[in-house]
Computed example of a mutant assay.
Amino acid sequence: MASNVFGGVVVTYVSLCVDVSSYRPGILKLLEHIRPTWKEETIEFKVFEGGFTNCLVGVKSGEEDMLLVRVYGRNTEKFINRESEIKNLVYLNKHIGTPPVYAHFDNGLCYGYAEGRHLALDELYDKTMGRRIAKELAKMHAIPLPAEDTNKALLDTVYFNSWLDEIPAVLETEEKTARMKKLIGSVEELRRECDELKSHLDQLNSPIVFCHNDLMSKNMIYSQNDGSLTLIDLEYGGPNYRGFDLGDFFCEFAGIDTVDYNLFPSRDYQLVWLRMYLEEAALLRGEEPSTVTDEMVEDLYVEANQFALTCHVMWGIWGLIQARYSVLDFDYLEYAELRFGEYRSRRETFLLLKKPSKK
Rank of each mutant, 00 (worst) to 15 (best):
D260T: 01
D149K: 11
G50W: 13
T128C: 01
L246E: 04
R285A: 11
K46N: 15
V59P: 11
N93S: 11
V18N: 00
E172W: 03
C194A: 09
G185S: 04
H118K: 15
V313Y: 03
F48V: 13
I96C: 13
E280A: 09
G8Q: 04
R117L: 07
L119M: 06
Y113C: 13
H104D: 03
T98D: 05
E337M: 02
E303Y: 01
E295Y: 08
L328S: 12
C211Y: 02
C110I: 14
L229D: 08
S357L: 09
F350W: 04
V187K: 11
L164M: 03
V313H: 01
M216S: 09
S290N: 10
E287T: 06
V71C: 09
V9D: 06
R347W: 12
K355H: 03
K181M: 05
E136Q: 08
V170C: 04
L30C: 02
S3F: 00
G8S: 07
A178G: 04
L67H: 10
V20K: 13
H141F: 09
E148L: 05
G237Y: 10
L338R: 02
G58P: 12
R192H: 11
D245G: 11
R339I: 05
S290D: 14
S199M: 01
E166M: 14
V292H: 11
I80F: 15
F350C: 03
R192M: 13
M180I: 00
S186H: 04
A336M: 00
P36V: 14
K354C: 10
